[in-house]
C-alpha cells in the first residue's frame, strides 16, 4: 500500500514538473526575455570582434594603405560622376511620379537599421538575432529586408534584441503575389535558399522566373517587397495542386546590416 502511495506521489511530482515546463515554454513573455539573454552577450562578442578587426586594420602596412587610398580616390571620382547621373535620374523620377500620381508605398513605413549579431543555436531552425528591440520600436510581425529583398519576419522581441525567422524556415508562412500575373499564392519556407508556393490551382497562371512579392492581403505586409524567384513548376501525378519551387534571397553567410520595416 505504501509502495502505491509513494508511486502516486512520484507520479504527481512528475506531472507538476511537466506542467511547469509547459508553462515555461509556452509563455510568450519568457520567450521575449530569453531573446535578450542571447542578444546581449552576442552583441558584446560581435562588438569585440569588430574592435579587433579595426585594430588589425590599423596595423596594416603603409604600402597597402597607400595603394588602397589611390584606388579609392579613383573610385571616388567615378562615383562623383555617377552621382551626378543619379541626381538627374532622381529628379526625372520625381517628376514622373508626380505626373503619374504614383503612390510611394514605403513612405508610410517606419524603417529601422539593425545589425545581425547571432544566428539560431539550433541547426534545425533558420533564424537570426538583430540588435534592435522593443526599445527601438520593433514589433512582432515586422518585416526584415536586406539588399531590397525580404529575408525574414520578426518573431520575438526583447528589450534590446529581436529574433527574426528567415524566409527559408519551414515555419515562415505568408500570402504572396506573383509580379507578372498577379496570382495570389501561399508561400512557405523549405530549406537552404528555398521556398515553396502551396495550394497553387492548375488554372493559376504561374510563370517560370517570375518574381514572388509580398501583397497587401497579408495583414502585416507592405506591398511589393520581393521574396524570391520561381525556379521550378511541376505537377505530381495524382495531386491536384501544382508544385512551385521558389529561390529566396536569404544568404546567411554575408548578412551584416538589415532593415526592419514596420508600418
Amino acid at each position: 500500500m505504501d509502495n502505491v502511495k509513494k508511486r502516486l506521489i512520484k507520479l504527481g511530482i512528475f506531472f507538476v514538473y511537466i506542467v511547469v515546463i509547459f508553462i515555461f515554454l509556452f509563455s510568450g513573455k519568457l520567450k521575449d526575455i530569453s531573446v535578450d539573454f542571447i542578444g546581449v552577450p552576442s552583441n558584446f562578442i560581435y562588438s569585440t570582434f569588430h574592435r579587433l578587426e579595426e585594430i588589425s586594420s590599423f596595423f596594416k602596412d603603409k604600402k597597402s594603405l597607400y595603394q588602397e587610398n589611390e584606388k579609392l580616390k579613383k573610385e571616388l571620382e567615378i562615383l562623383k560622376l555617377e552621382n551626378q547621373k543619379v541626381f538627374q535620374l532622381e529628379k526625372e523620377n520625381e517628376e514622373l511620379r508626380k505626373v503619374l500620381q504614383f503612390k510611394n508605398q514605403y513612405t508610410s513605413a517606419k524603417i529601422i537599421v539593425a545589425r545581425v549579431i547571432a544566428f539560431s543555436p539550433d541547426n534545425w531552425v533558420n533564424s537570426f538575432f538583430i540588435d534592435v528591440g522593443s526599445k527601438d520600436g520593433v514589433k512582432e510581425g515586422d518585416f526584415v529586408v536586406a539588399g531590397g529583398y525580404l529575408i525574414g519576419m520578426v518573431k520575438s522581441v526583447g528589450l534590446n534584441s529581436s529574433e527574426v525567422l528567415s524566409v527559408n524556415d519551414e515555419n515562415f508562412k505568408i500570402t504572396v503575389r506573383t509580379r507578372k500575373t498577379g496570382e495570389i499564392c501561399f508561400y512557405s519556407g523549405l530549406g537552404y535558399k528555398k521556398g515553396v508556393l502551396k495550394y497553387v490551382r492548375p488554372e493559376q497562371d504561374i510563370r517560370f522566373s517570375d518574381i514572388v512579392e509580398t501583397t497587401i492581403l497579408d495583414r502585416n505586409c507592405l506591398e511589393g517587397i520581393p521574396v524570391g524567384i520561381i525556379k521550378k513548376i511541376s505537377t505530381k501525378e495524382g495531386e491536384f495542386f501544382k508544385e512551385v519551387e521558389v529561390e529566396t534571397f536569404y544568404y546567411p553567410y554575408s548578412l551584416d546590416y538589415v532593415i526592419v520595416v514596420s508600418r
Binding site: 539573454f37 542571447i38 552577450p41 552576442s42 562578442i45 560581435y46 570582434f49 545581425v116 549579431i117 547571432a118 544566428f119 539560431s120 543555436p121 541547426n123 538575432f129 537552404y192 546567411p252 553567410y253 554575408s254 548578412l255 551584416d256
Partner: peptide, 26 residues
C-alpha cells in the same frame, strides 16, 4: 551551458567560417 549556447549562436561560425551546420557544444 548557457555560455556554450551563446558561443554556438555566434556570427563567427556562419559569417567568418561559413559553416552550414554549427557544432552542438552544449
Amino acid at each position: 551551458a548557457y555560455l556554450l549556447v551563446v558561443i554556438q549562436s555566434n556570427v563567427f561560425f556562419k559569417g567568418v567560417l561559413k559553416l552550414f551546420i554549427v557544432p552542438d557544444f552544449a
